[in-house]
Design a protein around this nucleic acid. Structure first.
Lengths: 109, 109
DNA sequence: CCAATATGAAACCTTGTGGTTTCTTATATA
DNA sequence: TATATAAGAAACCACAAGGTTTCATATTGG
């Protein structure tokens, strides 16, 4: 059972693209207008605007219209779905880490 | 700064597709051959095989050749990269959760 | 050895995705 | 009010992605 609904797909899709992950990283530091974001990437503003749209579709950013510019603000809450999905694998990499730890400890005897 | 290297992209890409996430969910329960996996989806075996390839490229499954069948085993370790990337947003949704908690507590007064 | 089985591989199709350019619209400001 | 600026919208393009069908190959079991 994968996270609920069509929303999850949009979130996973949103973070699948490296540019979009980088945008989220930027917005984690400060709110930025579309143009501000576009300035920091080697691509045109419309391209960046599309990425912002995808992020918005995933609910990962909120857009505040301020005069003629749109300020994009990070909304990390939906990422909790990703964390939730990852949680079910925690046992697996804990097992791995435990195995590793045990091996290290055995070598230290 | 997004997770390091081209590997991260492959991991994020691998988990972006709902079918592939479902496959990982399956493999979390037991190891399965290609055919075993394909049986549980409404698509042809080659299609499933391609998904398994993507998962393998991301290092998320290990394939053990056993006679004429390939047994796919989950390897969740690379998902730690995703967790690592998500960690930087922890402050954000903790803030959110805290806000929520405070509101609930205020209402309970 | 022969037939069935499990899979890989290649060719192909349709749609989605990430990007561009160009044009329009709305808001600030000199 | 005329002009700069910020952004949305639409048309277009190349390539990646997800799927199919068909064929080839290796192993297993009678």
């Amino acid at each position: 059972m994968t996270p609920s609904g069509p929303q999850a797909d949009e979130i996973f899709r949103a973070i699948a693209d490296p540019t979009r992950r980088a945008i989220l990283d930027l917005l984690a530091e400060r709110d930025l207008s579309v143009g501000d974001v576009a300035e920091r990437f080697d691509m045109t503003r419309p391209a960046v605007a599309k990425h912002l749209k995808v992020l918005s579709d995933g609910g990962l950013i909120a857009v505040e219209v301020r005069g003629r510019q749109r300020i994009n603000r990070l909304n990390a809450a939906p990422l909790a779905d990703v964390v939730g999905w990852l949680n079910r694998f925690e046992g697996f990499w804990n097992d791995k880490l435990n195995t590793l730890k045990q091996e290290v400890e055995r070598k230290h005897d």
